[in-house]
């Protein structure tokens, strides 16, 4: 009985908190520009613990460093560390020693606790796919991807603005915009997240599903090679603090992109499958889409429907269905934004 009372008290507390959150709106208070945020992050990382930051850096970075260490090991043993390799003001023993620890493998990367790098979402960049001469996919009914993506993006903008988010769009009418310009615009506008909206086409016309992409590791040999070359050329972050922070930031961006993609994909599939059980969950995937490579913030590309399936195309003609998709993306973004204020430890 006492236990039931306790459970009830706890639940009432949660209900009250949820309602207070609704009244107050998004709690995030965005700092002025990403650069200042990065600078703050740098200070926090440095003060709270540079070692923790580096240990937590990405698998890509780790693998690259491992390769670099392997290649350099003999030279280092022969010559010792090159003078100036680690500028003295930034010398922190655990950081430097990790890649040089010859008797131990490189430590497994740890997830970065969001407490260390407080990210917030205030400004959302919406990128309706295609436009102008680039129509994207086309349904037998005459519906074209560029129209659907723009319509959904505008609906999503309304939902976000009602919830007090700032929204900028890479296009607001039927005009062609290059991928580079889309990404550059998002970067210039200091967006906190970038959401590119597309509609898919499957060879198998019976398929209908949703999938969400972010930039990340791939099995594609070309991309692996490219990533390795870039990492090697960067000198790995031991040489300069700035480099380290950029890498660290890139790592966070990738991890945040993954979280964002997961939240949107989960919401899209759950919402759409509740009115249409035939919708497949094609999952969260990584791919080198141009806008994802060039953007400087967590970025995703969501394939929110498909025009190759006639039944799905018929649904997309209905405004209510497009609204439903916009709501689903909105819910995913909101879920992600709320999660940013929660540390990983609290979440688990």
């Amino acid at each position: 009985m006492a236990s039931l009372r306790k459970i009830k008290r706890r639940m009432v507390r949660r209900v009250v908190d949820e309602n207070l959150d609704l009244i107050r709106g998004p709690r995030a208070t965005r700092r002025s520009r990403r650069l200042s945020r990065l600078f703050t992050a740098a200070k926090v990382v440095f003060l709270v613990g540079l070692p923790a930051g580096l240990v937590a850096s990405s698998m890509v970075l780790a693998e690259a460093a491992q390769g670099w260490v392997e290649n350099s090991r003999a030279a280092i043993l022969r010559q010792g560390p090159a003078p100036g390799l680690v500028p003295s003001p930034w010398r922190v023993e655990p950081v430097v020693s990790a890649p040089f620890a010859l008797d131990h493998s490189f430590p497994a990367p740890l997830p970065i606790d969001r407490k260390i790098l407080p990210l917030v979402v205030r400004r959302v960049v919406l990128d309706p796919g295609h436009g102008g001469d680039s129509s994207g996919t086309e349904a037998p009914l005459g519906l074209v991807e560029k129209e659907v993506t723009l319509d959904i993006a505008k609906r999503l903008r309304r939902l976000l603005e009602e919830a007090s988010y700032e929204v900028v769009m890479t296009r607001e009418e039927d005009v062609g915009v290059t991928l580079a310009d889309r990404a550059d615009y998002g970067n210039r506008e200091s967006g906190d997240i970038f959401v590119s909206i597309h509609v898919n086409w499957f060879e198998n016309r019976r398929s209908r599903g949703v999938e969400t992409y972010y930039l990340g590791p791939t099995d594609d040999p070309y991309l692996k090679d490219l990533a390795a070359r870039e990492n090697r050329d960067s000198g790995i972050p031991l040489a300069e603090f700035r480099d380290m922070l950029e890498r660290l930031y890139a790592d966070i961006r990738q991890e945040e992109s993954r979280r964002l993609a997961s939240a949107v994909q989960r919401s899209l599939h759950r919402s759409l499958s509740s009115i249409n059980s035939a919708i497949e969950n094609r999952g969260v995937k990584t791919a080198p889409f141009g806008v994802l490579v060039r953007t400087e913030m967590p970025a995703i590309l969501a394939e929110v429907s498909c025009l190759s399936n006639e039944a799905e195309a018929r649904r997309l003609v209905q405004p209510a269905y497009r609204e439903y998709i916009a709501e689903a993306i909105f819910d995913g973004l909101r879920h992600y934004a709320r999660g940013l204020n929660t540390s990983d430890n609290q979440r688990s």
Partner: peptide, 21 residues
């Protein structure tokens, strides 16, 4: 969704003194 809840909150404004959804 949050917007739905907010709409309801707006609709109830002035009708009651305190509200939980």
């Amino acid at each position: 969704l949050r917007v739905n809840r907010q709409q309801l909150r707006n609709a109830m404004s002035g009708l009651i003194d305190q509200l939980m959804i």
